[in-house]
Design a protein around this nucleic acid. Sequence first.
DNA 1: GTTATGATCTCCT
DNA 2: GGAGATCATAACG
Length: 200
Amino acid sequence: MKIPQSVYESNDVVKISKYLLGKYLYTFIDGQFTGGYIVETEAYNGIIDKASHAYGNRRTPRTETMFGTGGTAYVYLCYGIHEMFNVVTSKEGEPHAILIRAVNPTEGLEIMQQRRNMTVLKNTITSGPGSVAQALGISRKINGISLQSDTLWIEDKGLVFPESAIAAVPRVGVAYAGEDALLPYRFYVKGNPYVSKPNK
DNA sequence: GTTATGATCTCCT
DNA sequence: GGAGATCATAACG
């Protein structure tokens, strides 16, 4: 039961960010199947959001993926080291995206551990956007792929968190964005051990 | 062609 | 608690 294309084409990126909590993200990459449910997301709200790469309608080869139609993957390299995975939403021409910051792994734990080069299994295996991408085998090769594909997709398995278990707080690592850095565009499941940093 | 910088993580003190 | 790693991208000359 993949999440249908129509959901991604909605223009309310904040709402979708919240909706994605508890949805299962799966990858089938290099012949390995891994996945888990999403416990932390961040919304990037188009050209009016100073924290977004597409702020001010900045259209470049890199952000081109975000300007495409919803339901595709936007993957890029940050700090020269970390790949980051985002879900593009809304219609073509509107650069909305959702950064997947943390996942609670359920499938292929050993494979993730191997990819992350960990000798001991810890909660940090999928805690934080760079870690999630590495554990799931996501790289820039996947940039622009459809979430209806059999490489990377999201499923609704009926897992829902009550409103009281979801926190909405300012985003991380976007201090340069001025007042937009204060917007409560980061959502996470309270108390989940895989949520990054301030786990409250 | 050159330069500055980042939607971060890990390890060391 | 803090710095270093490390390079694609974008803005500028």
